[in-house]
Design a protein around this nucleic acid. Structure first.
Lengths: 229, 229
DNA sequence: GCGTTCCGATACACCGATGTATCGGAACGT
DNA sequence: ACGTTCCGATACATCGGTGTATCGGAACGC
């Protein structure tokens, strides 16, 4: 579990040992679960809600999962894989552009790339709720947290670090502190933005553009121009 | 609600309209609630748990509060006031030191102050759980979030900004970007640290010292030496 | 086409949490 | 001391969610 990024198409972890029918109902349950857990929270959601949203009864559920917690963990993994493949895809579509340009990127261009990279991320605020819910679960019941989870996160961070470093490089700059520290700052800014957006609701919403600007700003402060060569 | 920081002694919002006996049971319930909500979560906690921890039965509860949600909001406010007064006290005990020193602070000294300021904060990871729980509640049910809450947070941030700016000033430095942006970065780093600590549990725990170091590091990167005068 | 296997639906028993209505006693004023 | 008021305990009715055991039918192999 959480051992590696499944490179299959987004949203269908295929286990050949399971019949097609079973796969289908599992996936429908998993998708419904993501919605319901997001809306109601782990503890607030009921098995019944998930099932009816997926168009099943509880009979189907207990035939596929043994408890709500197991379903939650499975849902989390499912969504994480979605997310990981999205990240990878965006990274791969971005890297060639960065490699190809001979001229150092203009600040505005850098900002553009940051925006572009961030925008689809912002759309799914749903994800943030799930992740937060998981964090609380892990706080209260450390046993329940899948062992490989932290490592899984790290691999995502590593991938991200690679892209960011390429971007900074293409702008003719370099970090004035270790990359992972810089990444931590960006990550913190992102988390915080999500938190604030959540708390202040629709009003005073710090939008994606704003986050992009702030990250770009920080990016320039955390880097210095590399002496021409 | 959340309109201002109550400057009374930590942990007892005194409402003269209530009898002493009632105040006492309210406070006991509020304290128990903070523990139970932290351990079990808002939805996971039961009224019964809170009451028995406080040494009451549910009769006492329904005589003082009308629902679990109301209790939760009251608990949050209670704890926020605790926290605000702590912050203020620490700020006030720190400011004189900063004002008095004629020499620019050495980096190590700055680090020391940061550590000192952070350490008591780290101790109460309980707080983090409560705040997160509230955030999720507000996400799902924006109506429930007290209107003044965001403003209340801002006032805390403002207070913090003041101290940080004084510290930077005493070190003979100044921020290279707007203070509130820098604060956002620190805040993000702090939140992120708390999140990670929560997820990875005891192992791989990014301790308070570590957080302090990183914040100090960032603080120096985000500031520049002010030209001697 | 028929039997077997698989899988989801239905029905049921159980439990824990909620909220209310009532009771008993402590505190307080006179 | 007595009566009144206040406040928390007790008891009860109710409800919603859970998990299991059983049933019915679709899918698949031969």
């Amino acid at each position: 579990m959480f051992s590696a990024v499944d490179p299959t198409a987004p949203g269908a972890a295929v286990d050949p040992a399971l019949s097609a029918r079973r796969q289908e109902t599992r996936n429908r349950l998993l998708d419904a679960a993501a919605e319901v857990f997001t809306e109601e929270g782990l503890q607030g959601a009921t098995v019944e809600q998930v099932c009816s949203r997926a168009g099943f009864t509880r009979g189907a559920f207990y035939s596929n999962f043994s408890s709500k917690e197991e379903l939650f963990l499975a849902t989390l993994q499912h969504q994480y894989q979605r997310r990981a493949t999205q990240l990878t895809q965006r990274a791969e579509s971005l890297l060639p552009h960065l490699q190809s340009c001979a001229e150092p990127l203009q600040p505005a261009e850098v900002a553009g790339y940051v925006q572009e990279f961030l925008s689809p991320l912002e759309a799914e605020s749903a994800w943030f709720a799930l992740e937060t819910e998981f964090m609380l679960l892990a706080m209260r019941d450390p046993e329940l947290a899948p062992p490989g989870f932290a490592g899984f996160l790290d691999s995502l961070k590593g991938e991200l670090a690679e892209v960011v470093e390429k971007l900074v490089d293409a702008a003719g700059r370099r970090f004035v502190l270790p990359v992972e520290r810089a990444l931590a700052a960006f990550d913190g800014l992102y988390d915080r933005s999500a938190r604030l957006a959540a708390i202040s609701g629709g009003s005073a919403h710090v939008g994606a553009e704003d986050l992009g600007e702030r990250i770009t700003e920080l990016l320039f402060v955390l880097t210095e121009e590399v002496q021409g060569n």
